[in-house]
Computed example of a mutant assay.
Amino acid sequence: MMDNQAALSRTILIQMARNGITQAQLAKKAGIGETKLSRHINNYRDWTIPLLDVLAKPLGLGDAFGIVEAAQKERALVKSIKSNQRLTA
Rank of each mutant, 00 (worst) to 15 (best):
M2R: 15
D3R: 07
N4W: 12
S9I: 08
I14F: 06
I14T: 15
I14C: 06
A17S: 13
R18M: 08
N19L: 01
G20A: 06
I21H: 00
T22Y: 00
Q23D: 08
Q23Y: 06
Q23G: 14
A24Q: 13
A24E: 14
Q25G: 04
K28V: 07
K29P: 00
K29I: 04
A30T: 05
G31D: 01
G33S: 12
L37F: 00
R39G: 11
H40P: 06
I41S: 02
I41T: 06
I41K: 05
N42P: 03
N42W: 02
N42E: 04
N42L: 10
R45W: 06
R45F: 10
W47L: 00
T48D: 06
L51H: 09
L51Q: 09
L52R: 04
L52W: 05
L52P: 03
L52C: 10
V54L: 06
L55K: 01
A56M: 02
K57T: 14
L59S: 03
D63H: 09
D63W: 00
A64R: 07
A64M: 08
F65K: 08
F65Q: 14
I67F: 01
E69H: 12
E69C: 11
Q72T: 10
Q72G: 12
K73H: 10
E74H: 11
A76R: 12
V78W: 04
K79N: 10
K79T: 14
S80P: 00
S80A: 15
I81T: 08
I81A: 10
K82I: 09
K82G: 11
S83A: 12
S83F: 06
N84D: 11
R86C: 00
T88S: 09
T88M: 11
